[in-house]
Amino acid sequence: MNALAARRRHPAAIALLILLGLVVTGVGYSVLAPKTASATTASASQVEEGKKLFLANCATCHGLQAQGTKAGPSLAGVGAAAVDFQMGTGRMPMAAPAVQAPRVNEVRFTQEQIDAVAAYIASLAPGPAIPSPEYTSGENANVALGAELFRVNCAMCHNFAGSGGALTRGKYAPNLRDIEGKHIYEAMVTGPQSMPVFNDDNISPEGKNDIIAYLHAVDKQENRGGMALGNLGPVSEGLFIWVFGLGIMIAFAVWLGRKAA
């Protein structure tokens, strides 16, 4: 009986570890601290500073004139928004070549440095600017409309609660929990990596603000019924009931069947 019980628990332990991993991943995203957004006009010295930073950190892949190489695309016309998004979320500079640049919690550059590089890139060719805080705060917005926009335009990749989802060949749509409104907005207007572009004609700035408001609401309200299990849908629920539900039941059944001391 003991041997049987031990065998039952063994795979359960692995599943438990996976589950723990999921929970830890979820919690891990809550570390990123929000920063103040500033959309100031670029000065010449800022562009100069940005160029220096670009040559030191980005030019290896994107070329000396940001014209692009085999390793990285041209940055002409991507706009300040793209730079602020990619560097502000730690995706750029990439640590190692991969199918997709992952978000990194520890951003290596200060906001001033990022703004400088953004100013430099924006000076090369016109592109989407860093959005005005009016549309990225998620305040004075219609959460319900944002939720509807999110479901139609975003949920198919990012999941109903922004938990992320898989794309083809190892690419993925990242988790959207606890992301700064500015970065959400910038991702929509610039279409980083696999993500399509949602320009202001597609989803208006107000609509984007509504989406941001919805995502902020999700950040706050996920725990109505208890632990959210990563908001991954029925798979994590099934895993939970198999590991914990069945595990607890068997533990009680063993206790019940064992002779008292």
Partner: peptide, 14 residues
């Protein structure tokens, strides 16, 4: 029209 990533049935229909 919309859909969510990770559209799965409950485990027994998995």
């Amino acid at each position: 029209s919309p859909v969510t990533a990770g559209s799965q049935p409950d485990w027994y229909m998995g």
